[in-house]
Amino acid sequence: MATDMIKIAGVSKVYDTTQRGRHVALGDISIDIAEGQFVSILGPSGCGKSTLLYILGGFVEATTGQVLVNGQKVTGPGPDRGPVFQEFALFPWKTVLGNVMYGPLQQGLSKEAATARARELLVLVHLQNYEGFYPKELSGGMKQRVALARTLAYGPKILLMDEPFGALDAYTRTRLQNELLDIWGRDRKTVMFVTHSVEEAVFLSDRVFVMTKSPGHIRKVFDIDLPRPRVRAELLLDRRYQDYVIAIERLMDEQIEEIA
């Protein structure tokens, strides 16, 4: 089971900005992620963690190094890797149902089959009563549920989540974390989750990669050995959970001191 689904080897990203010369967004990153693992990338803003995710998605080209998914070199976006963005990126001109149907239709499903598939997913994210709504009529949490359903609808093996709950209020955020774990527990997709919240990373993940400030390197890897299914209220009292959070917080404090 522990085959490496994702192999990121020596990936870096340098932007050629015309005015200020070269900007190194991402240092030299090498990560292996096993199939079915929930992995978080944790780091301060601007460390390039999202860039890493975009490179894995095939949206942005790496300057050096390469990314292998199932042994295949990543050369562009593909339906095996589904992104979920902080900004939702829903198609504003499509209804909730239309957004979720988009992937299945692109995959060549008939209209009826795509509708059925989309409805299934809307039930999964508890939005079955909103299929005729337009994104602008939904709250942030609902929009992110639609975005998740839209991505799940074309059946990616890997979920690429780019601070998906970063724009939501604390209450919605917690609820969606629980729902995400619930959905993940059903078929255990490989997830790469980018966040700057330590608690979120520890609560959700099997492994947490902590990155340094720009240009980002991997500072340390934490294997989160906590039982699943995880229940927040229980974890908060769990000594091991507290230790992980404290250890990571300390590590990040150190970085701040090093800069200061």
Binding site: G57, G58, F59, G76, P79, G82, F91, Q107, R150
Partner: peptide
Amino acid sequence: LVWSARAAG
């Protein structure tokens, strides 16, 4: 928006 569509195929 484009990336979302590209990833969907």
